[in-house]
């Protein structure tokens, strides 16, 4: 039983990270109907920025404190928000009215640009990462829960709660949902669609940066291709939950994390990726619109 609970905790912690990334995919898909393949790379840049601010530009890595970690996370999230803004502005906006395949290819191009540009700028080798002070694991019953896992779950939960508030209870969030249903009509309501799209990219990138930092803290290293697998998994999670659906991305991420950890725990960790993608195929066969996705065809 303790073993099972241990896997559940691990799964929730990994799943929370997937969910944070998946939210960015799903929100951008919502407003632009575009899979932003560069999203996983923004996640990497988030971790990278935290690495640089902590170990190159400050002494946080040598003398870590909670306050310092928060500051570094906020700085990295802000930088990534800016990067998300620039990506949309430079790469996607000029193609807004072009056939969708053009944007898709551009997205792949942006992804390669960041990955290989990252290898030039940051160097190809992994670096050790650490912005948190050493914290003892928390013992609950027979369970030992790592401090990083607790922080990951708490931070992810807080961010997801905040996002949920923004999307469903603010004027901007209502506008985001309106744009995702019909940008032309949203504009007739006075909504500046370009602004909403930029806002969505910024929001998604900020969450990706947070996810990147949490991920780098859990598996304590950073390198320029670290966004590949988590990015892909989060995309799978977004599709499982129902692409374009905000609660769906959260559910999909958590579910995928749980299943992966249970598979690694009870079978073999070599199987976990295969199972993740098998789950994707299964969902696409059984319920192509995703677990929480609308069954209706895309509106034209």
């Amino acid at each position: 039983m303790t073993e099972f609970l241990q896997h559940i905790i691990n799964g929730l912690s990994v799943g929370a990270i997937y969910a944070l990334i998946a939210l960015g995919y799903t929100m951008v898909y919502g407003v632009l109907k575009l899979i932003n393949f560069a999203h996983g790379d923004v996640f990497m840049v988030g971790a990278m920025m935290a690495f640089y601010t902590s170990s190159k530009w400050s002494s946080e890595a040598q003398h870590p404190t909670i306050g310092g970690a928060v500051l570094i996370a906020v700085i990295s999230m802000a930088i990534c928000g800016l990067i998300g803004f620039v990506i949309e502005r430079v790469a996607y906006r000029p193609l807004r009215s072009a056939p969708r395949i053009n944007s898709l290819i551009t997205a792949i191009g942006v992804s390669f640009f960041i990955e290989y540009g990252g290898q030039v700028v940051f160097g190809p080798t992994p670096n050790a990462f650490g912005i948190l002070p050493p914290l003892p694991p928390v013992q609950v019953g027979g369970l030992s829960i790592g401090a990083v896992d607790i922080i990951t779950m708490a931070v992810a939960l807080a961010l997801m709660f905040g996002l949920q508030r923004i999307v469903f209870h603010t004027r901007l969030g209502t506008a985001m949902r309106a744009v995702s249903h019909n940008p032309d009509v949203a504009a007739l309501m006075g909504v500046n669609v370009d602004f909403i799209i930029s806002f969505t990219f910024v929001l998604g990138s900020v969450l990706a940066a947070a996810a990147g930092i949490l991920f780098a803290s859990k598996y304590p290293s950073v390198q320029p291709l670290m966004g590949l697998m988590p990015g892909l998994k989060a995309f799978v999670a977004a599709v499982i939950g129902g692409i374009g659906n905000v609660p769906g991305a959260m559910v999909g991420g958590l579910l995928l994390g749980l299943i992966e950890q249970l598979v690694s725990g009870y079978f073999s960790s070599q199987w976990k990726d295969a199972v993740a993608f098998a789950l994707l195929i299964l969902i696409l066969l059984v319920k192509p619109s995703g677990l929480l996705g609308r069954a209706t065809a895309e509106k034209v």
Binding site: R171, T174, A175, R177, A178, H181, N182, D184, V185, A186, L188, M189, G190, V191, R294
Partner: peptide, 18 residues
């Protein structure tokens, strides 16, 4: 051009977006 996935109330609020 109503927004089918938004509530009646939210549709009205969007009318007053500015």
């Amino acid at each position: 051009g109503i927004f089918p996935q938004l509530t009646v109330h939210e549709n009205l609020l969007l009318g007053a977006f500015l």
